[in-house]
Design a protein around this nucleic acid. Structure first.
Lengths: 110, 110
DNA sequence: ATATATACATAATTTCCTTATGTATAAAAC
DNA sequence: GTTTTATACATAAGGAAATTATGTATATAT
């Protein structure tokens, strides 16, 4: 790592994308999935994750459902109808952003 | 636009990259070059640009040289030796970041 | 004469993240 | 059997980097 600050602003999109693929996930599971997906390159901290989940819920993009597994608390999040729509548009913005950044940092290959 | 917040954290790298290509540039020129390069997708605001340039200078990555052109002030920035080294590493981090984000948002194509 | 473009700057505020800390249970290691 | 690590949530203090608003000044276009 060392480039963690480049991820600033993309956490919500990452969460939405994972929930689009997985129907429902809980917080800790999200951090582990991201770590695995990125081969350890991106580690979402709890101080970033939980406020982000609460924000997405407050904005009506996620629904939450509490469960008790192995005597431990889990909060399962899933996309609302609105969240599903918003995910599509956030992903389009992300693709646009990635393309644009490629154009800037590597103009020869784009 | 609407995805401007995704650019959060990448402004310094963008500036360094442009200066790697252009030897010396002044602030306003950087905003115009970026607007043109990105077809209007990214508009660097002055409130972001000037503090960023001052920070890079304070960190010893840029040298500044004041010039008067058409009776107007211009501050030309160029990479220091250290800035050139740092640019290489920042660009490597950016490429890594872009690759990782592609893996997350578009796993099928990477 | 007025609006737009060029060219710098900074202050107040907001956003998003890091770092630190806290609670609690389960499993693994020593 | 006790301590460490993993699982699972949460929030508060602080910092970095942006947005928004405002300011100065000259040149060009309408």
């Amino acid at each position: 790592m060392g480039n963690q600050k480049l991820y600033k602003g993309s956490l919500q999109t990452i969460i939405l994308k994972l929930l689009e693929e997985n129907d429902k996930m809980y917080g800790y599971e999200i951090t582990q999935r991201v770590k695995q997906l990125t081969k350890g390159e991106l580690n979402i901290t709890e101080g970033a994750l939980y406020p982000a989940l609460h924000k997405l819920e407050a904005d009506g993009l996620l629904d939450v459902e509490v469960a008790k597994v192995d005597n431990r608390l889990r909060k399962y999040y899933k996309l609302t109808e609105n969240g599903t729509k918003e995910t599509v548009s956030r992903l389009a913005e992300m693709e646009e952003f990635l393309k644009t950044m490629q154009t800037i940092v590597n103009p020869k290959f784009v």
